[in-house]
Structure formats: C-alpha cells, structure tokens
C-alpha cells in the first residue's frame, strides 16, 4: 500500500506486493523438515493460504444499483442539504454521498444480512434498539415514497428536489423534530427515517472514498483527518502542533 502517499504507486501493484510477501511466508513453512501444520482433518481450511486476502473493491461510480430515478433526485437533494456546498467543501451530492447510499443499500448493509432477523417482531423499548422487520433498503423505499407523498400534498404537488432550499430545510427539520409524521409502519417513525438518512450521509461523507462518498477526500481535508496513514511515531509527542501531511486513501490517493 502506498502509505507514504508520495510514490503514487498503482494500488494493484501494492496488493501484488502484499501477496508476494505473503507467499514468501508460506514458502518458509513448506521447507522440508520444518514442522508440519497441526491440522490433519480433511475439509478444514488451512490456516495460511495464498491469495486469501480480501481487499475491498472500490465501487463503480456509474449508474444506480438500488435507487430509482425519482429516489435518486430526492436523496441527492437531501444529502446536499445535510452537507451544503460552501467554502469548506463541496456539497453532499458532489461528494458522492447519494452514490454511497445507493451502493450500501444494494449490498449487505441494505439487506441486513448480518443481523438477527427472526421473528416474532414486536414493538420494543428504546433501550432495545430497532425491532422492525424492514431492512435499511426497505426503510428507504417506504420512507422516500411516503415523504414524496407528504411533500406533494403540502407543497402543491411538487417533488422534494423542486422545493427551495429553505423549504427543504423546513421539511428536514420537521422530520428531525418529529413535527412531520409520515405513514410508515410500526417501529419505524419519520424521525427514525431522518436519523437513518443522516447517519448514512455522514458515513458516506467521512468514509474512505472507495465506497463512493468523500470524493477527493474532501471531508478529510475539511477537518484535517489524515485518512489511511498508519505511522505517527514521529509526531505523537509533538504536542499542540499541527500534523504536516494531508490525507491518503486506501487506494493511494493523496492530498
């Protein structure tokens, strides 16, 4: 990996290097006379295996995988109000937050694939966390549809993206405070939908760019976070001094 950020080496080269290093370690184990690995049962994954690494694949920025065109317009407008373009950074849309949300909803996160999803689904206490049956993908589909209904009913048939910035902010503030209720399902309130969208937008803005958001590491530059740098030994004890280097990303962008 291009940790130093100054070589600009191709990322795939970095991964090859990792694999080469890794194969070398396997080769050491294979020397005749070296102690054999203990596992002896068939069907057991060997503890060390070549090409086993599972690097993340950067998203393809083209097209939409989950959101439908009318949903894209809404989500792009919403992330642009959560993170408006100004002198500090581009807006949420240009930073890629809508693309990030789309790819997350199209994948494991959107499907709740790692969560406990067995019934019965019963209303819970706040201390018990989300107890609804809808996955994040399901919550977006329903939430965006009902939000669209609400806006058309209250703003003369317009869509969210067609409202003024002030009107959009009013709607979002109404969702956040609970003043606006949407016809959703038990256990999933308009407020919860707002929190989900805000959380995912911030995830996209501040995550590594490989997931589609934080394009050009704009969020990291805005706050001074160095990203995927991995060695601060020379700086920890330089108290109350700025860190002199810009961020790097997992796939080797540096700024």
């Amino acid at each position: 990996m291009t940790q130093s950020g100054d070589g600009g080496a191709d990322k795939s080269e970095g991964l090859k290097l990792c694999r080469r290093r890794f194969l070398a370690s396997v080769a050491v184990l294979a020397i005749p006379g070296a102690p054999a690995l203990a596992r002896s049962y068939s069907g057991i994954k060997p503890p060390f295996f070549p090409f086993g690494a599972d690097p993340p694949r950067p998203i393809n920025p083209a097209g939409w995988y989950f959101l439908k065109p009318n949903e894209v317009a809404m989500v792009e407008a919403i992330v642009d109000r959560f993170i408006p373009a100004d002198h500090l950074s581009p807006g949420g849309k240009d930073a890629g937050c809508a693309v990030f949300i789309d790819r997350q909803l199209a994948g494991s996160y959107g499907a709740s694939s790692r969560l406990y999803m067995k019934g019965p689904f019963m209303p819970g206490l706040a201390t018990q966390g989300y107890q609804g049956e809808l996955t994040p993908a399901g919550r977006y589909r329903l939430g965006l549809a009902r939000l669209s209904d609400y806006i058309r009913a209250h703003y003369a048939g317009k869509e969210f993206a067609a409202l003024s910035h002030a009107q959009q902010d009013d709607v979002l503030a109404g969702l956040e405070s609970g003043k606006i209720e949407l016809k959703l399902v038990p256990g999933f309130s308009a407020r919860a939908f707002f929190e989900l969208m805000l959380q995912n937008t911030m995830e996209g803005f501040f995550a590594d760019p490989l997931y589609g958001g934080n394009r050009g590491m704009v969020a990291w530059k805005m706050i001074g976070f160095p990203g995927a740098r991995y060695d601060y030994r020379d700086y920890v004890e330089k108290h109350n001094q700025p860190y002199p280097h810009g961020p790097v990303s997992i796939y080797g962008e540096h700024g």
Partner: peptide, 21 residues
C-alpha cells in the same frame, strides 16, 4: 491471521471494521 485478515493495505477502513463491524 495478520497477513490475510488484518492486511495493512486495507485495515485502516473505518466503515468496514468500526461501523459495519
């Protein structure tokens, strides 16, 4: 193991490890 699963090339990934667990 460290070489495969905690690879320095992609371990600094807050979304994957800290947020998506």
């Amino acid at each position: 193991d460290t070489a495969n699963d905690f690879n320095i090339g992609y371990m600094p990934d807050e979304l994957r490890y800290a947020i998506r667990k």
